[in-house]
Structures are given as C-alpha cells and as structure tokens.
Amino acid sequence: MNPRKALLILVPYLWLLALFLVPFLIVLKISLSDVALSIPPYTPTLDLSAGWAGFRDFLSELDFENYVFLSEDSLYWKSYLSSLKIALISTFLTLLVGYPVAYGMANAPDEWRPTLMMLVILPFWTSFLIRVYAWMGILSNEGFLNQFLLWTGLISEPLTILNTNTAVYIGIVYTYLPFMILPIYATLEKLDASLLEAAEDLGCTRAGAFWLVTLPLSRPGMIAGCFLVFIPALGEFVIPSLLGGSDTLMIGKVLWEEFFSNRDWPVASAVAVVLLAILIVPIILFQRQQQRQQEAEQ
C-alpha cells in the first residue's frame, strides 16, 4: 500500500475511532462504575500508571449494579415502554398523514413536481427547534387552535393539548413528515402506470386497483419511511421536553435529566447503553430491508 493511500484511510479512520468508538466504550465502562462524590463523579477510574495490577483492580470494581437498578426502578422501564409506544403510534400517524401527500405528489402534473419536492424538502432545512417551537403557540390554552375551535363553536371550553402526549404526537408527525413523504413518493413515482390500467381493464374499480396494485408496490417506501421516523423518534429529546408534560415519559428526556439534574453519570450511561440495545433491532432490520431493496433494483 502506498503511503498516500494509507494516509487517506488513516485520517478519517482515526478520527472516527477517537471520537465515535472510544467515547462509546467510555460510556459502556462508566455504566459499570459506581457513583462517587468526586470529579469526575464516578469510580473507579482507570489508572494506567499502575500497570497490569491497576487494570485488574479496575476490572474487579466494575459491576452491573446500575443495570439492576434500571430494572428495579419502575421509572426506567416505564420510560422505555412509553418511548416505544409514543414512537410506534406517531410513526403510524405519520404514515397516515404522509401517504396521501406522497400519493398526491406522484399524481401531480410533471411541471409541478420540482416545486412540490422543494416544498417538502424546505422544512427539512429549517431549524428543527423552531419548527417544534412553532407548535407551542398553536397548542397552548390561549393558542391559535383553541381560538379557532372556540370561534367555530365546536368547543365551548379551551382544550388542554400543550404539555400532553397528544402534543408530542403532533410534534413528531410534523417534524418527521418529510422523512415519510420522500421515500413513499420515490416508490410511487417509479410505479408503472400500465399496471393500473391493466387492473382496471380486468374489472378492478379504482379503489380496488389502488388496494391490490399501488399499495403493495409502494410497500418498500412505506417501510423505509417508517424506520426513518421510528428510529429518531425513539430517542427524541426536544419534542417531549417542549411539547410534552411532566408525565410524558421518554427515554431521551430521562437520560438528559439523569445527567444534567441528578448528575448521576453511571445511571445515565446505563440508560444510554440500554437505549442503544433497543435500537439495534430496528436498525438492523432497516439495513436488511435497504439491502434487499438495492438487490431487487439491480
């Protein structure tokens, strides 16, 4: 291998090793340590100067105490379950909202499509924090939604939406909608229209043709979209902390509070490790699906 190529490989490789893999190993290690009133607030610290004996001492002091604590304290497993529930429900809602939009885009006249695409992508470039914040003024008790509903006479008392799980669902659907629309649109756009004509010639109604032809053929896009929403929604922090209430349990928020408010680094690290363990299943499924998709296209 020539030195130039080695350098080309080594620079990004070492960067990622030092700033991605090593930090994660540190989290793993701290999750096995104990809390201590010191700086940094955990023991044991690895003392490399003590050589092999120091390393042995270090290993002997690690234990799974924090994980036992996570499994015993109901706050944690309730938060994991509630994060899963919130992520699943909001992924499903995003699919319900996103599919008709993607379908409409795929059926729009050709000259509209670049504009429609741009309109879907534009929010993606806009600050995530600002898009979540925009809903605070809409959903509050004196907010625009309540003002509008009171004005139409549909309700006589303002609804409490902000600081509930409903607001979290709305926030997730809103911010992740482009991630759902784009992959579905990509599969619908490639769909061969002659298949629909054939179905209708063979006696299908339009709805029947949609159900039997369009929907199954757009499945890869729907699956990709669902993963793209579900995976980040599970570890979400900003949406539950701005739109959710004190009873909204999401694991991203619990980790944040454990770290910043309780300053319990070992438990925060254990929360992170378990969250990652939960995420690995959907991530692997998603990668497999993407691979199958690529092979099918070749």
């Binding site: 930090p23 994660f24 540190i26 989290v27 980040p232 570890g235 995420l279």
Partner: peptide, 20 residues
C-alpha cells in the same frame, strides 16, 4: 463507524463525547 452516527440518538452521541 460511518453509518452508525446517522442512526445514533443525539443524546447518546452527546453524552459519549462529553465523557470523552
């Protein structure tokens, strides 16, 4: 290592870098 950070929850990336 190139693909993992794309799906890693931000809270974990942040925590791990801070600890480093």
């Amino acid at each position: 290592m190139i693909y993992a950070p794309l799906v890693m929850p931000e809270v974990i990336t942040g925590l791990s870098l801070l600890l480093l």
